[in-house]
Design a protein around this nucleic acid. Sequence first.
DNA 1: GCCTTGCTGATAATGATTGTCAAAACCATT
DNA 2: AATGGTTTTGACAATCATTATCAGCAAGGC
Lengths: 134, 134
Amino acid sequence: MKRNTWQREAVRGALDANDGFVSAQALHSALHSTGSPIGLATVYRALADLAVTGDADSLQSPEGESLYRACSTNDHHHHLICRNCGLTVEIEADAVETWAKDVAAQNGFTQAAHVVDVFGLCAACTAQAAASAR
Amino acid sequence: MKRNTWQREAVRGALDANDGFVSAQALHSALHSTGSPIGLATVYRALADLAVTGDADSLQSPEGESLYRACSTNDHHHHLICRNCGLTVEIEADAVETWAKDVAAQNGFTQAAHVVDVFGLCAACTAQAAASAR
DNA sequence: GCCTTGCTGATAATGATTGTCAAAACCATT
DNA sequence: AATGGTTTTGACAATCATTATCAGCAAGGC
Ligand SMILES: [Zn+2]
Ligand SMILES: [Zn+2]
Ligand SMILES: [Zn+2]
Ligand SMILES: [Zn+2]
């Protein structure tokens, strides 16, 4: 049976407190900075559990790191992510869903899954970059 | 100036000989099995170069490993990949291109890039899986 | 409160990738 | 073809994220 521990709650809470996608390491650091003595391995385990149950979304950063986020819905959706500050916008794209399904079927593929993420610079970071370049 | 070495050619050749996406480690093993004494670090460097120049496509496997492939075109495109045997189909999706651009612009994002990959089981692997399950 | 058993955390282990740097290979020039 | 400045290579160490271990702790049913 699955038990309830304060550690699991702490990780869930830390995820909720973060707006963008964060790594397990970053979340562990954040928890430590608030005085929590939670272990790193436990953070990894909790995040993996949350991802399995659908309570957290996960994706691979372009650098190959696993990032997690507590999204507002557990329905299938995608993300628009600022590569500078991590600001994340949840996006739905029925057109992309059907396209992915169709392209797989047309090529004889089954059990299709897809990875669709958009990375860019948010308006604030764009302005900041322009200012510092001046 | 960039020099031409047999190592670079060997990596390019090994990539061409492989139909699907392969990891640097796998490519190094493949080269070794043919008797090539090329070093692992060199394979990593060559692949990084090929990716920068656009001669190779790269993506992150769902497990976070960097995979490379020599595609038939250096134009922007995406991939449908068999997660069992690695069979890869190059796919174009103008609809997805415009969608990605639009969704970024509508949210004030600039310098947008996107990651779009479809993973599944190819027809052959699907049949094989069905047979072994019987 | 007791007991069973899942959970935690310090630490070691793993595995991919990158850094180091002396030796070897390129290549324009002589 | 030999020379020399520069780049590239490769063996190895170093990093870094993630996972495995495993003894001790604690959640929850009794
Ligand atoms: Zn931003
Ligand atoms: Zn989708
Ligand atoms: Zn296949
Ligand atoms: Zn595209």
